[in-house]
Amino acid sequence: MDNDLYSNDEKNRYVKSFLEKNLLKYGNIHYVYSVMNKSRMNSMSILSNFPDKLVDDYLDGGKQNIDPVILSALNRVTSFYWDENLKISSRWEIRSIFSPVKPYNITSGYAFVLHDHQNNLGILSLYIDNLLKKETLDLILNHKDDLQCLLLSTHEMLLDVYHNHKITKIVFTPRENEILYWCTTGKTHKEIAELLHISLGTVKFHTANIVRKMGVRNIRHAVSLATELKIVSPPAGKKIC
């Protein structure tokens, strides 16, 4: 198995933390976020709240090559419902691929799909407990747009953190650190400007520098990443509660 695709544990923990925080509103749901290179299908990374052994067995066995959900997603751009009767090429059923999750009372789920500019297939698959099938499926269908956006945001974040190889060596100026700290507390740019007695334009100038230094796309991602990696400190005389 090719294990080189997005295999940094620290960066994956950050992305996984972001994803799980945003899935909390959907209850105690099992998920798999997978990224696979479409030219090298053995090159795959998985983030999930299933046990590590289940994920490792799947990857070690190269199951993505016969997984009907993966193979269906390769030819789709829209989300879709799946169950153990899903077929490969409309003919072949491989129900054994779903056997490892049956102890969790799962035989179906819903998959969200994206294809990125690096020739990767990204999938966010949400697994449906048979005892809560109607409620869970209704919840997913009522939030399809939000969940598709969550996949896009998560995947964008994954690409961002892997693009920036020196994220833990960033040096902020005192003012950048101060502004980033207040951003992590949830304050808006306008509130920070009033708090520090500087102009709104100055705040935006420094946040743009923070985003550039961290190699991310916006201040929201910068705040999440800085918090996860613990690279922001409170201003002098300010204690973190």
Rank of each mutant, 00 (worst) to 15 (best):
D9N: 12
D9Q: 13
D9V: 15
E10Y: 15
E10S: 13
K11I: 04
K11H: 09
K11Q: 08
N12Q: 07
N12W: 03
R13N: 12
R13F: 15
Y14Q: 14
Y14F: 14
Y14A: 15
Y14N: 12
V15F: 01
V15K: 06
V15I: 11
K16E: 08
F18R: 03
F18L: 07
E20K: 08
K21L: 14
K21D: 14
K21Y: 12
N22W: 00
L23R: 00
K25L: 14
K25E: 15
G27Y: 03
N28C: 07
N28H: 10
I29F: 09
I29N: 03
I29E: 04
H30N: 15
H30T: 09
Y31P: 04
Y31A: 04
Y33C: 04
S34N: 02
S34A: 11
S34P: 00
M36G: 03
M36D: 04
N37R: 03
N37C: 08
N37E: 09
K38I: 11
K38N: 10
R40V: 12
R40G: 08
M41F: 06
S43L: 11
S45D: 09
I46C: 06
I46R: 04
L47N: 05
S48L: 01
S48Q: 01
N49D: 08
N49Q: 07
F50S: 03
F50V: 01
P51W: 12
P51Q: 09
P51H: 09
D52L: 13
D52C: 07
D52N: 13
K53N: 13
K53S: 15
L54N: 05
V55P: 02
D56G: 12
D57I: 10
D57N: 13
Y58P: 00
Y58H: 02
D60F: 12
G61T: 10
G61F: 04
G61K: 09
G62M: 06
G62N: 09
G62L: 00
K63S: 11
Q64M: 10
D67R: 00
D67H: 00
P68A: 04
P68E: 06
V69N: 04
V69G: 01
L71K: 09
L71R: 08
S72W: 10
A73W: 08
A73I: 03
A73K: 01
A73M: 03
L74T: 07
R76I: 02
R76K: 11
T78Y: 15
T78E: 13
S79P: 03
S79L: 06
F80I: 01
F80K: 08
Y81S: 03
Y81F: 11
W82T: 02
W82G: 00
